[in-house]
Design a protein around this nucleic acid. Structure first.
Lengths: 202, 202
DNA sequence: CAGAAAATTGAACAATGTTCATTTAACTAT
DNA sequence: ATAGTTAAATGAACATTGTTCAATTTTCTG
């Protein structure tokens, strides 16, 4: 049974707008996204955008979900590719995989964090869930080097380590705090010493 | 010799606009800043803003410099207050001082990083310099626990550690990656193990 | 104090997200 | 098939903003 023409058109337009937004963000920045450009790309009227998405913020969040899923894919691949190495090596590989994604998808990655929602706009749960997936990859090797610790602590630490590496990358590309060619060695330096410190305890 | 009335007025307006912008950012967000509100606050015309500042971005950057200087002051105080403690304890105190500033000056802090400049707009050198000051505070205790290492490495590591702690705080308040009550213990956990790992090396 | 120079003004402009009355298309029951 | 009903698509119009600039006011100078 075919879906109604209406729903079919709506789904097509949904995808067309998402594709257009993703391409435009990738090619310039999220701040340069314009409703009229999207409508022109998708071959629809200006108002049609608002039949499919609540507003531009919602559209951007959908692009962000796609980006999160691509990051997840990248990290999953990195996790698989180095599955037999030591946990610490895998953690470093994961950090580098994330860094590589940032370098190769700069504007889409920036859109994830640069685009600040209006004050009343709630960060949707499905975006938070999309982020959560990422920590799975870190948690796996980390739970080996933190064997015996509380699962809650391991889970928290996976998130904090991600946030820490993310901070190093972010303050490098956005604020020149960390020199670009220091990012990779510093992520490695901090991870190695953190893990070494873990095993130096009790 | 009194400065000309023109320059006097200009200086007064400069301060009045900065004060108004700072107050308004602190009370709502940088995204809610409106040129017309600033003019009303400062008792000047709309156009007068542009006699004193290049544009609103420049005004916001000046507020950011003030914020950076206040962060510097906070960290300097923390550094002094715990001057006789172990280096690692001082590093933890510095991280907590930064966290405390973020909690107590949320919107001004967010303005530092949320406000993305137009693509052509160069991040001014005096903002970068303002950031650099912050790393001095970390470099001091860090150079004790990294005694004998290359000064270049110590300097890089101070920046990376700041960026790492900043990342943990940022992804906590903006993205819910790290639970709020986990931020402080996690910063401490990561710093302690990192430093422990350092001394575990040759 | 007159005239020149400079700053101040705020109405007008341009850009842009969003809305909604009108038009067009899709569906349904006979 | 078709008239009638329901729903979607349209894009002109609106509201909000940052920024500009010709006209006005103020300040400076000889």
């Amino acid at each position: 049974m075919p879906v109604s023409k209406v729903l079919e058109r709506k789904a097509k337009l949904h995808t067309a707008l998402l594709d257009s937004a993703e391409r435009r963000i990738a090619e310039s920045t999220v701040g340069q996204l314009r409703a009229r450009d999207l409508a022109a790309d998708a071959g629809c009227s200006l108002g049609a955008i608002y039949n499919v998405f609540e507003d531009l913020d919602a559209l951007i969040l959908h692009v962000s979900l796609r980006t999160l899923q691509r990051i997840d894919l990248t990290m999953a691949q990195a996790g698989r590719a180095y599955a037999d190495e030591d946990p610490i090596e895998r953690m470093i590989k994961l950090a580098n995989a994330y860094l590589e994604f940032v370098d190769g998808n700069h504007n889409l990655w920036r859109a994830l964090f640069d685009h600040t929602l209006p004050e009343d706009y709630e960060l949707p749960q499905w975006i938070i869930d999309g982020q959560l997936e990422l920590f799975r990859h870190i948690e796996e090797p980390l739970s080996l080097v933190m064997a015996g610790q509380e699962p809650k602590l391991i889970s928290q630490t996976a998130r904090s380590l991600f946030a820490a590496m993310h901070g190093i990358i972010t303050l490098s590309v956005e604020r020149r705090v960390v020199a670009p060619d220091a990012v990779e060695p510093q992520m490695e330096f901090i991870l190695r010493n953190f893990v070494k410190g873990l095993s130096a305890s009790t």
